[in-house]
């Protein structure tokens, strides 16, 4: 293919009518917000009640480069700045936790009571997708992503409950309120599946939704603050502007 064709600023809509299709590169600016949770897949029975759940302010901003090989099929790669976060308030019972500290200390216990957790992590992510464009309104993509964490927050409080020192047989210690901060414990690399759809609403503007499902627990195996894995499961709702 000739470079002239490669960088053609044709929007592709015209090309779908042509019989001789020439592959084309497309550029898009992506902007939106992430809604979802850093959560277990299936709740453990130690979580007794979810009293509240709210999204944090989680913008997603990126640039996508796609190669449209045929009328309908292509591939895309993007670079995005993704904030992923949420807040939750729940009630737990006999919730096992092990906290290890930098001075070599260790505390292990089972907590029963209220928990409030805030998560807000910033990733640089690289989604790679196969792109299917059945008509000039719809565009679907499916693929995976890799992401690097560069700023992390995972903190909260436990309150109005008690912890049993060492486990269920240990002595009960009442807790009115205590804080925790596991931000520094988080894994810096995430990988997952992603896919979504966009619908064209203007000449160059589309609205889109994309589900990103992390496949790697956000905490390393040796972290025992929680005894079940958490995954980043977020839906990006936003717009794409073709440039």
């Amino acid at each position: 293919m000739a470079p002239a064709t490669l960088f053609a600023q044709d929007n592709g809509n015209g090309q779908t009518k042509n019989k001789t299709y020439k592959p084309v590169l497309e550029h898009r600016i992506l902007a939106g917000f992430n809604f979802g949770a850093t959560a277990p897949v299936g709740l453990p029975n130690t979580i007794r009640k979810i009293e509240g759940f709210w999204p944090e302010f989680c913008p997603s901003l990126g640039y996508e480069l796609s190669y449209r090989a045929t009328h309908k099929w292509g591939a895309a790669i993007a670079v995005k700045l993704d904030y992923k976060g949420m807040g939750t308030k729940d009630v737990v019972q006999y919730f096992p936790t092990i906290i290890t500290t930098s001075d070599g200390g260790r505390f292990q216990g089972d907590f029963s009571g209220e928990n409030k957790t805030t998560v807000r992590n910033a990733y640089v992510s690289f989604p790679v997708s196969a792109v299917f464009t059945p008509n000039n309104k719809w565009r679907f993509n499916l693929g995976g992503y890799v992401a690097w964490l560069f700023s992390s927050n995972f903190y909260g409080t436990v309150s109005n409950g008690y912890i049993r020192n060492g486990g269920p047989k240990g002595e009960k210690v009442n807790i009115t309120e205590a804080t925790f901060d596991f931000g520094k414990e988080m894994r810096t690399f995430d990988v997952g599946l992603q896919g979504g759809a966009s619908y064209r609403v203007g000449k160059n503007l589309s609205i889109n939704g994309n589900l990103n499902w992390g496949l790697r627990p956000v905490f390393p195996d040796e972290f025992k603050g929680m005894d079940f894995p958490l995954y980043n499961i977020y839906l990006t709702l936003g717009v794409a502007y073709k440039i």
Binding site: L43, Y94, P168, K169, L235
Partner: peptide
């Protein structure tokens, strides 16, 4: 999709049997 995610969140399982003695 959003509803599905909320449903995943709201699957509260049966309470654990009291392990305390």
């Amino acid at each position: 999709l959003a509803t599905l995610m909320v449903m995943i969140q709201s699957c509260i399982r049966d309470a654990p049997i009291n392990p305390e003695a």
